Simulated assay, not measured.
Amino acid sequence: MIRTIFFDYDGVLTTDKSGSLTTLRYLSKTSGIALSTLNAAFGPYTADLLMGRVSHTQVWGGACEAMGESLDIGLLVEAFESTPLNTVMLSLARRLRENYSVGIITDNSRDRMDHLRKCQGLDSLFSPIVVSAEVGSSKRSQDIFLCATSCAGVAPDECVFIDNSEDNVVMARDLGMHAVFHDDDKNDIDALMEALEELGVRVGGYSF
């Protein structure tokens, strides 16, 4: 019996493939600095940000030095808030919550998710919200999934996990979770609902 549906955040609940893309694209647009320059400056810090070893505040100076530009760190909050939500996916999550608990499992920095949880009201819909930077484990290992199932009080085979990375779907399945790949380029919610129904999830009649 399925009891909990877990969603990835970026690329599933949002229409951007990653948080880095959202953040750096905004910084490029507002500053005029080339996206490639920003990627080169912030890229070396990505793994540490996602694992919670550093914050954006701690790496900001080093990134600015690397690109030879001085950026106002206040732009970071604006960049976080530029995250484009996938409104039809959120509607599906609300629908599913009528019969299941719904949560989030995401590889993300702590400061970004802390801010988005507040400004987007994520905690009013999703519980638990499990963030790689908080648990020190990414979706490259099973630990973050075990943390999520433990927080939800369910066994892996009582969960469905939706992600836009096929590698992450395989990792979840290896643990015993039911997992569905969502092609974020197509964002085909009807196909996703069909896949959920095949797993025994009651989606119900709903038009998007």
Rank of each mutant, 00 (worst) to 15 (best):
M1G: 10
I2Q: 06
F6A: 09
F6N: 05
D8W: 12
G11E: 08
S18N: 10
S18T: 15
L21Y: 14
R25S: 14
Y26H: 04
L27G: 04
A34M: 00
L35N: 03
L35F: 01
L38F: 02
N39E: 08
A40Q: 07
F42W: 14
F42I: 07
G43H: 10
G52K: 05
V54E: 01
T57H: 11
V59K: 08
V59M: 12
E65H: 14
A66L: 11
G68Q: 12
L71T: 01
D72F: 10
L75G: 11
L76C: 04
T87N: 00
L92D: 01
L96R: 00
R97Y: 02
E98M: 09
S101D: 15
V102N: 09
I104Q: 02
I105V: 15
N108A: 15
R110P: 00
R112P: 09
R117N: 06
L122F: 08
D123W: 00
D123F: 01
I129A: 07
V131R: 10
V131Q: 07
E134N: 12
V135N: 02
V135S: 00
V135F: 04
S137P: 00
S141P: 10
D143N: 12
A148W: 08
T149F: 09
S150L: 08
S150P: 01
S150M: 11
A152C: 09
P156I: 03
V170T: 15
A179N: 06
D183L: 07
I189K: 12
D190H: 15
L192A: 07
L192N: 04
A195E: 09
E198Q: 14
F208C: 09
